[in-house]
Design a protein around this nucleic acid. Structure first.
Lengths: 187, 187
DNA sequence: CATTTAATAGAAAAAAAATTCTAGTAAAGG
DNA sequence: CCTTTACTAGAATTTTTTTTCTATTAAATG
């Protein structure tokens, strides 16, 4: 019941991501300008600027995490490599969300004033990912730090060569996989 | 002649880098607060907020470039690997400058209002680095994109695993070197 | 079709930040 | 020691941005 919303989160997060990844600075006016949504509607939905930022970060984080966890939890030989490739693939499939996650810093979206509910949710997602990487390291009998680098550090470095302006090419995947295999030992 | 300055650029750039890498947002007041320098002095020296930001970026960029170019231009077998290692080493040796260069985006420091003189200087440094990487790729007979990834993309990804809060450990260097060798072919 | 609920809309107020401007201070040279 | 130069200091102003608040609109329900 009640009036229906005339806009969806995705369009707001997209404008936000573009602005943050673009000139590194988001004003609510820039979102109003890019989307045509009124300032009142933004406050009605997100409560505050900080609530909006955190919500956008969480949205991207969850979308990525779903892919990453599915890949890394698979009990196949290629589980690790697929998890490493989750990053470049995510950038191609979900460009708008990837902008936020891959070319911005979490600290740009979370601050002292971030609503605690969102702080907790984001922390929980991060915990879950960390646990999955640790489980992978144990399973493979490899060093945790090496796994973090091969699964996250290098893949992020790779996509940041292209974002925010260019698309991440398939060739990046090959390089990520190559580095992954080298780091994990060619056994 | 004339009164001597009571502060140096380094202290200003340090406060700026900490602030930008920390919460992703720099106000002149945050610099005044962190350094005790007066707002008037900042305007006297840098002309504007945008002038200050660009000057800080250029300062870090030049410091890094000096090391990178020296490494990559050496005509030894390890030239490439040393150039790749320039990034983690720079982070250890020059933490404050590395914060700016490695954990922020250039677009956070350059904007429409950046003084043209600085825009040109920064572009020139970037051009020089790009040319050096291309020369390296030609010399080694490797793909340019692969070289960019091995020399810059992966090393940056590696140090960003640690910055801004932790120091970049030596183990990161081994991983960077490992990925470099894998990407460049183990010949 | 009146009522309730959930939005939209944007002007107005408040807060925060950048910039300007004037007065004052320290060093060097004649 | 007076003058010039280059800088410091920070209050006052302007600009930008966030936030609040009231009016209005659209859908759903009895």
């Amino acid at each position: 019941m009640g009036r229906r919303s005339t806009f969806d989160d995705a369009s707001v997060f997209e404008a936000l991501g573009r602005s943050m990844a673009g000139n590194g600075n988001v004003t609510l006016q820039s979102i109003v300008g890019a989307t045509g949504i009124s300032i009142g509607s933004l406050y009605h939905r997100y409560g505050s600027r900080e609530g909006l930022l955190a919500q956008a970060w969480l949205d991207s984080l969850e979308a990525f995490q779903e892919r990453f966890l599915q890949a890394i939890r698979a009990n196949t030989l290629q589980a690790g490599e697929n998890a490493a490739l989750a990053t470049p693939r995510f950038c191609r499939d979900e460009h708008d969300r990837a902008l936020i996650l891959a070319s911005c810093r979490q600290s740009e979206f979370l601050s002292d004033g971030t609503p605690t509910r969102l702080v907790h949710q984001i922390a929980e997602v991060n915990r879950e990912a960390f646990a999955a990487v640790r489980a992978f390291a144990d399973r493979e009998g490899k060093d945790l730090e090496t796994c973090q680098m091969a699964l996250i550090g290098f893949p992020l470095g790779a996509v940041r060569m292209y974002l925010p302006s260019r698309k991440v090419p398939k060739s990046a995947d090959e390089m990520v996989a190559c580095a992954f295999r080298a780091l994990m030992g060619h056994s």
